[in-house]
Design a protein around this nucleic acid. Structure first.
Length: 728
DNA sequence: AATATTCCCGTTTTT
DNA sequence: CGGGAATATT
């Protein structure tokens, strides 16, 4: 004991060395709630890892520590960094979703569910919702599955069950969705499936209801750490609170200025009210930035200061001023991409490390033109799109087989593979099989494998029987490890043969299948005891950034959302245009402050060089559209910015045949809204009664003083905005 | 039953 | 533009 303490004592001292005062306070805090408000680049990860190691070497055993991160990649890195401090053995580091999925499998009986539940991906979920709409005798045309899905997802994030949602629904639309929600839940139960939101909601509910389990878990996880606390939703908040009910050892870290997931139910007030929730809380502020240059920090700080709903904080750095922040003013997206690609290319040629270079954009669709330009210039790149791989048809096909073997109730997967590869079971036959299952109140799987009489299926009966036989044969593979099961399924199902057609392409289906097998092998190596179920779960919960490799020797492309928590020497943020960043959809009010935080996150990823760009024309859905510069650019301190010239031919560019005159929006378009006063050279003064920003046309409905009312396309009108006090 | 073609719609961010 | 569904063709 004595030696251990002594050992612990010196280890503890080592863990505090080289930290600044607030960092040290955070690391050495032991029992009781702790809130670490960590500005960008303030050494949060270091603090968190050191604190975990510190706790492990002073007051507790690592197996009593639970750390929740935002992505699997962050979890892996935290684990590695703690391991480097020689204190990680037995610690649990995981995302909320992975943690919950594991818990639900482990305590499936207590949660009243099947241990082998399927986690529905986006596509499955969409399909299930569509089915639910149809089974509710509604038309998917009027009740778009996407919209219904969004409402249900929000409800789940607020922990509203179908019944609770129905009670809270007071208008016709929500009442109808409540009906769909109930049907959807029934459908999920039949599939033995959970969607992403269920993972959280179920665990929150379970912890709330089952005191004994909660106490057991509390005893296991005595110190809980939740990273990116500003992005937790109601269910995650509840889980964190319930897990720390007795000991109150919750350490939350985050930054309200980096809250960027409001649209998915994240509630920024969870972090803002931490001190109210935990009156005993110790609060530590990390405000010294070690990452960025003075100029970058000053610009980011000026931007975020525009937000009104915000707790002010002082970011500072003792780093050098660094080079100026640049803004590229480009003619169109191709020029924007070309400028960036050319610059990156020459930087890399001059010895810059590609791993330290990143390009961020607001929406994934902007990546394509960048890819083309980088390809053209021979710059190697990687895109943060981990999920894309798992969304490919061939991958989903193989995984569907495994999912059916693990969970025969997974009808969505079963119907996916029943005729993949084509085996002569057409839609009519499938329909009959499904009908028969419904009539007999059994699963489709049972109809196929039960050995019952299928002769009423006519000529297809044989095929159906053979498929049932195949499923029975494959069933035993569930016991094998993931790579073995996968390999056998690919072969026996005929998928490998089906996709082995053209193998030349770089991302051909055949290659993807090989890559999938490879992924399973890698998984098996790092999780020797992992089952097929575990691997499927791992695959279901992968995120976009998880695909990013640190030492890839490539430039990285990703969305601004994916960039959270990362850092790069050089950062390019493209598409600083009104409507794109801030992103706006007509008729949908946008949370401009959240958009601003998003840019703040992007800018503060940069260590030394930050470049932003905008294009005057951008192709959107195949048509070039005139853009308006992002108002955010005007919020940055002008003297920190260095504007890089537009192409010389910009103004002299002649309109070629086929080009359409797109008119011109006023410079101050960002400030146009319903209610403002406007002037027209002929009609005089008027007030804007209606205003809609379309992608190509902006319509304004103006009531003039004369009583005349006109509907104009703003791009072609001679309207100008009038300040209220100019009216005179 | 399987494949080819057309057309129409929506249109962020993600676990 | 791109995916999905409805429609046409073999």
């Amino acid at each position: 004991m004595g030696t251990r303490r002594e050992h612990g004592g010196s280890a503890a001292a080592r863990l505090l060395a080289g930290l600044n005062e607030p960092q040290r306070e955070a690391v050495s805090h032991q029992d009781g709630p702790l809130l670490i408000l960590a500005g960008p680049g303030s050494g949060k990860t270091r603090v968190v890892t050191h604190r975990a190691a510190y706790l492990a070497s002073t007051v507790t055993d690592p197996r009593h520590i639970l750390a929740i991160t935002f992505t699997n990649k962050a979890a892996r890195e935290m684990q590695e960094r703690i391991a480097a401090l020689e204190a990680a053995d037995g610690m649990t580091v995981s995302t909320f979703h992975a943690f919950c999925a594991r818990l639900l499998r482990q305590y499936a009986d207590r949660a009243g569910m099947s241990r082998n539940f399927t986690i529905l991906d986006r596509e499955d979920r969409r399909k299930a919702i569509k089915q639910a709409v149809e089974r509710s005798d509604l038309s998917p045309t009027n009740w778009s599955p996407a919209a219904v899905e969004a409402v249900i997802s929000n409800a789940k994030n607020e922990m509203l069950t179908a019944d609770a949602f129905a009670l809270s629904a007071h208008d016709w639309r929500r009442n109808t969705i409540a009906r769909i929600y109930k049907v959807y839940e029934k459908l999920l139960a039949g599939l033995e499936g959970l969607d992403f939101d269920d993972l959280l909601m179920r665990v929150a509910a379970l912890l709330e209801e089952d005191d004994e389990l909660r106490e057991r878990l509390e005893d296991r996880f005595r110190y809980v750490l939740v990273d990116e606390y500003q992005d937790t939703n109601a269910a995650q908040y509840k889980i964190a609170r319930l897990l720390t009910q007795e000991r109150q050892n919750l350490c939350a870290t985050g930054d309200p200025d980096q809250s960027i997931y409001g649209w998915r139910g994240a509630d920024i007030s969870n972090i803002l009210h931490f001190e109210r929730d935990y009156p005993q809380a110790k609060v530590v502020r990390l405000e010294q930035n070690y990452r960025s240059t003075q100029k970058i920090l000053a610009a980011a700080d000026a931007l975020i200061a525009v937000n009104v709903h915000r707790k002010a904080k002082t970011l500072w750095t003792s780093n050098d001023p660094g080079p100026a922040i640049r803004v590229f003013d480009c003619e169109d997206e191709r020029e924007e991409a070309a400028m960036i690609a050319r610059e990156i290319g020459s930087a890399v040629a001059d010895g810059a490390d590609p791993n330290g270079i990143a390009v961020f954009y607001r929406v994934n669709s902007l990546s394509r033109v960048l890819e083309e330009a980088l390809l053209q210039d021979g710059v190697r790149y990687q895109i943060a799109r981990g999920v894309e791989f798992y969304n490919r048809k061939e991958i989903k096909d193989v995984l569907a087989y495994l999912r059916v073997l693990v969970n025969p109730s997974d009808e969505i997967s079963l119907l996916r593979i029943i005729n993949t590869p084509p085996r002569g079971i057409g839609s009519t036959t499938v329909q009959r099989i499904v009908e028969r299952a419904r009539a007999g109140n059994v699963r489709v799987f049972d109809v196929l494998t039960g050995g019952g009489d299928l002769s009423d299926l006519g000529r297809s009966a044989d095929r159906a029987r053979q498929f049932g036989q195949l499923l029975r044969e494959l069933a035993a593979l569930v016991e094998r490890d993931a790579p073995t099961a996968l390999d056998k399924v690919m072969g026996r199902s005929g998928l490998r043969a089906m996709y082995s057609g053209e193998e030349d392409m770089d991302d051909s289906p055949a290659r993807n299948l090989d890559e999938l097998l490879n992924a399973a092998v890698v998984f098996h190596e790092s999780h020797p005891d992992g089952t097929v179920v575990d691997w499927l779960e791992h695959a279901a919960l992968i995120s976009d950034v998880d695909a990013v490799k640190d030492e890839s020797g490539r430039v990285t492309l990703m969305t601004l959302h994916a960039a959270k928590g990362l850092e790069f020497d050089r950062v390019y943020v493209v598409g600083l245009e009104d409507g794109l960043l801030p992103f706006r959809r007509q008729h949908d009010e946008c949370d401009e402050e959240e958009e601003r935080r998003l840019l703040f996150v992007g800018m503060t990823r940069a260590k030394r060089r930050l470049t932003m760009s905008h294009a005057r024309f951008r192709m959107i859905r195949g048509v070039a559209e005139r853009t308006v510069r992002s108002p955010f650019l005007d919020e940055l301190p002008g003297d920190e910015l260095e504007w890089s010239g537009p192409a010389p031919s910009r103004n002299s560019r002649k309109r070629s045949r086929g080009d359409v005159d797109r008119g011109r929006l006023p410079e101050d378009i960002a400030r146009w809204e319903v209610g403002i006063l406007v002037r027209h050279p002929v009609c005089g003064l008027g007030r804007v009664m209606g205003f809609s920003r379309g992608p190509r046309r902006t319509h304004v409905d103006v009531l003039f003083k004369s009583g005349e009312r006109k509907n104009w396309v703003l791009e072609f009108s001679d309207l100008t905005r009038v300040e209220f006090d100019e009216v005179g």
